[in-house]
């Protein structure tokens, strides 16, 4: 593949999988400005890794690995800002929840639940919500399929508890 073809290939991959960039960035980065930096960093890493693509895996598996690895590493560097932002958003959101529609409340609750998860659980949660098969999740995370099942089971339990609290 010559340089021009490689650039075109890169643009096509980004266009086809921009949703992954967006979802991962949204889950790991509540701050809009930081989120743009994170998306930029993910795209740079996709470009720099394009020659490493191994076609034994689906392109989405490869893309998820890069996006999640970058997001977790980015979070490690930006914890201070992320913490400040989380505190602020928690303060801001506390009051108006009751005024929101049922759908908005549930969405808020889901976002809040994801933001409280630890980094690797958060990756698992995104893949679960994206309806990925246990096999693909195992390939992305690098754990066994049975381990994926157990971990998802635990997260689902927590999620169920959280939503049942909302009902009550």
């Amino acid at each position: 593949m010559n340089e021009k073809e490689q650039k075109q290939h890169f643009q096509n991959i980004i266009e086809q999988h921009k949703g992954i960039l967006h979802k991962v960035a949204r889950a790991y980065c509540p701050n809009e400005d930081d989120r743009q930096d994170l998306i930029q960093e993910m795209m740079i890493q996709v470009w720099l890794s394009i020659h490493r693509y191994n076609n034994q895996f689906k392109i989405s598996t490869w893309f998820y690995r890069i996006s999640l690895n970058v997001a977790i590493s980015f979070y490690r560097k930006n914890t201070t800002r992320a913490n400040k932002y989380t505190e602020l958003t928690e303060q801001l959101i506390e009051t108006p929840v009751e005024d929101k529609s049922e759908n908005e409340r549930q969405l808020y609750l889901l976002d809040q639940f994801i933001s409280e998860l630890k980094e690797i659980d958060k990756a698992l949660m995104i893949l679960y919500l994206e309806d990925k098969s246990h096999t693909e999740i195992a390939e992305i995370l690098g754990i066994s399929v049975s381990n994926v099942g157990t971990k998802i089971g635990r997260i689902k339990d927590k999620l169920k508890t959280r939503f049942s609290q909302l009902k009550s």
Binding site: Q45, S49, R52, Y53, N54, W62, R65, I66, L68, N69, V70, I72, S73, R76, E119, I120, A123, E139, I140, L141, G142, I143
Partner: peptide, 18 residues
């Protein structure tokens, strides 16, 4: 470090190095 490797392996390497 190869960022296209699975999450657990990459993060373990990065964390150990740090």
């Amino acid at each position: 470090i190869d960022i296209t490797e699975p999450i657990i392996r990459t993060q373990e390497k990065l964390s150990n190095l740090k």
